[in-house]
């Protein structure tokens, strides 16, 4: 029953949309005029820079002097950079903290809040969503203090008698990346929760009632009714947070700048250094292209895994 209900829900909005598309077709060329502003902005600020980056990746260029054709040299250079493998590995590990844990936390919070808590839902939402509103540079600076030698984390550990564990978390080669990842968890969990809460509220209440009549408890109801209903939201959350993990820059830049000794290097940081410290626009663009391909592949995989069976 549950499965049938989900399929119905998933398929339901599709039909009318297709019909509407047909209606719009008769609008003719006039419709394009309305799209023009968006197309101009999209092409000018997204397509053009992306194509330029691809073009630069085949040039030997410092940003000022006349560029020379470099063929695939930049890609060879970028891909053989001894720092790259570790940086990509770090980015992949960050997915655990930026994506996997926040989605789990978001689902848990949704299960606890939806349909039960009537008062204070808004309060929880605001509190959990707040990290999303704050600029990551401010977040990073604040967390650097939290993690510092005499910061809040260590004060707390001292307080509960675990003083022997204290360290400068971001200055420790073993823990820096995990500490950084947990900042990501803190930032992303609220976003996931918001997405899931709004998704869960769309699920028809009668489905929950029917499940309850069939004897399903809260856990069963969540797993069989709410969770399947959140497939799209989970997929979206997965995509957004995975991109945030792989393309993370600002957070790393202000907290560790890749340190200590390269333990928290991420690909975007290497792109920045190549472009703006070393002035090697070609190699930086090549690395950016490689990073983009990686992101597209992973995002594609997530979308594929979360697809609705048709």
């Amino acid at each position: 029953m549950n499965e049938g209900a989900t399929t119905a829900r998933g398929a339901e909005p599709r039909e009318p949309r297709r019909k509407k598309r047909g209606a719009l077709n008769q609008g003719g060329r006039g419709a394009w005029l309305y799209l023009l502003p968006a197309v101009v902005v999209y092409v000018g600020f997204l397509i053009y820079p992306a194509v330029s980056t691809l073009q630069f990746s085949f040039l030997d260029w410092d940003g000022i002097a006349p560029p020379a054709w470099a063929g695939i040299d930049n890609f060879v250079l970028a891909l053989t950079d001894p720092l790259l493998a570790r940086a990509i590995g770090n980015g992949l590990l960050l997915i655990v903290f930026f994506t996997v844990i926040p989605i789990a936390v978001g689902l848990l919070m949704t299960a606890l809040l939806v349909g039960r808590v009537r008062h204070g839902t808004t309060f929880f939402r605001v509190v959990f969503f707040l990290p999303q509103v704050l600029p990551l540079v401010a977040v990073g600076t604040t967390w650097r203090w939290v993690y510092s030698e005499d910061g809040m984390v260590n004060q707390f550990l001292e307080l509960i008698g675990l003083g022997h564990l204290t360290r400068a978390w971001l200055g420790d080669e073993q823990f820096a990346l995990v500490a950084l990842g947990l900042i990501g968890t803190w930032v992303m969990s609220g976003l996931c929760m918001m997405l899931f809460m709004s998704g869960a509220q769309k699920v028809d209440a009668s489905l929950h009632e029917a499940a309850a009549i069939d004897g399903a408890g809260p856990v069963r109801q969540f797993l069989s009714v709410t969770l399947p209903g959140l497939r799209k939201e989970i997929s979206i959350a997965g995509v957004i947070t995975t991109i945030a993990a792989l393309a993370s820059f600002d957070l790393v830049f202000v907290t560790t700048n890749g340190g200590p000794a390269g333990a928290t290097n991420v690909p975007a940081l290497l792109v920045y250094r190549l472009a703006f410290n070393e002035g090697d626009i070609g190699a930086a663009s090549a690395l950016a292209v490689v990073l983009t391909v990686l992101v597209v592949v992973l995002v594609g995989a997530i979308r594929y895994l979360a697809r609705e069976d048709s």
Binding site: K20, N25, A31, V39, Y42, V43, I47, V51, S52, P66
Partner: peptide
């Protein structure tokens, strides 16, 4: 929302514009 045909036209237009921009930027560079 567009028909597939218009989508292609749009894509072609976008690609054309992008190509023109790239070519002009090349001209500036060289």
């Amino acid at each position: 929302p567009t028909t597939p045909g218009r989508g292609r036209a749009a894509a072609a237009a976008a690609a054309g514009t992008a190509a023109a921009l790239v070519l002009s930027s090349c001209a500036v560079l060289s």
